[in-house]
Design a protein around this nucleic acid. Sequence first.
DNA 1: GACACGTGGCT
DNA 2: TAGCCAAGTGT
Length: 350
Amino acid sequence: MNGFADTLLDWFDRHGRKDLPWQQDPTPYRVWVSEIMLQQTQVGTVIPYYQRFMDRFPTIDDLAEAELDEVLHCWTGLGYYARARNLHKTAALVANSGFPTDQAGLEALPGIGRSTAGAIRALAHAQHAVILDANVKRVLARFHAIVGHTAEARTLEQLWAHAERHTPARRTAEYTQAIMDLGAMLCTRGAPKCTECPLIDECTAYQTHRVGEFPHPRPKRVKPVRQARMYVITTPDGACLLEQRPNKGIWGGLWTPPERSAATTPDEICSEVGIHCDSVTESRIAPRFRHTFTHFHLDIEPYYLCLDAEPALIAEGGRWQWYRPGQNRPVGLSAPAVKLLATLDQFELS
DNA sequence: GACACGTGGCT
DNA sequence: TAGCCAAGTGT
C-alpha cells in the first residue's frame, strides 16, 4: 500500500496533463528529446521548439544523419546549447547499437543523467524508475519539510531516498507525470494552491504553517560581470558578418557577430577579419546589453561598423559567414544575436 | 563541491 | 524591478 502514490494517481486521473505533445505516441526517441529540452526549461517554452524539432527530425536516424549546424539552428533561442550538441552526438552513437533501456546504459550517454534516464525508463518503457526534477524536489521538500537547499549533496540524498520510496511499481509512468503536474500546477514556487492539493493532510510544511520556508533558498552569491564587445559589421545590402563560436563556452557552436574584449579596437577587428579598414566607417556605438546568467552577467557593447562596398571575402575555414535576412540564412544564429541585430535596426544605424 | 551553461516567467 | 528560479548535466 502506498498512500502517497495512490492519492497522487487519483488526483492525476481528474486533473493531470494528458495532452502534452510528447505524451502522444511516447516512443523512447520522442520522450528522450522532450526530456532533454525540458531540462531547466519550462513546458510552455519547450512546446513550439519540440514541434519544430519533431517536424524536422521525425526519427532518431533523421537526427543522426543531420548536420550539427542544423540541429543547433532548431535549438536557437532555447538555451543550454550543449544539450543540442549532446543530442546529436547521442543520436549518432546509438544509431547502430540501438537506444539503451537500462539505467546505466542511458546514463552513459552524453546529456542523460540520473533523472533524465529515470524519466525515459518510466515514461517510454513503463519501467519502475525514479525521477527527481525541480517539481519533485519542491513537492518532496515541502511534504517532508526537508532542510537545506536542493543543490546540497546531503539534501539531494534525502530527496532521492524519498522519491524512490514514493514511486510505485505499478502505473509508474502516470505517477511520474502526476508528481510533476502537482509541482507545476499546484505546488508552485510562489503562491502554491495548497487548498486544492490532495496531499494537504500529510504535508508537513502545510500542517506546520511553513510552506513558504521550503525548499530552502540557494545561498546568495555575488555574480561577476564579464565585459565584451560585439562587432556588428554590415554591408550596404544589409548583410551582417557572423563568426562561428567554439563549442565550449557561451552560445557554443552558434553564429554571432564577432565578440572580442572591450579593449579591442575597430581597426584590430577589421584587420583580423580581413576587411580593409579604409573601406569601413564607424557609424556609432550602440547601447550596452546585459545578459544575466546563473553565475555571471555578460555586458555586451555592440560596436557598429558599416562597409562602403560589399567585400568579396571572407570564409576562412568556414569560420566567417555573411548573414542576409531572408536568404542564405546562417544556422544557429543565437537569439541574443537576433535581438541585438533587431534592436540595432531600430536605431536606424548606417 | 563549485561552477558553467540560456532564456523566459514570475513577483 | 531586480532577483530568483525552472522537466539537470558535464567538468
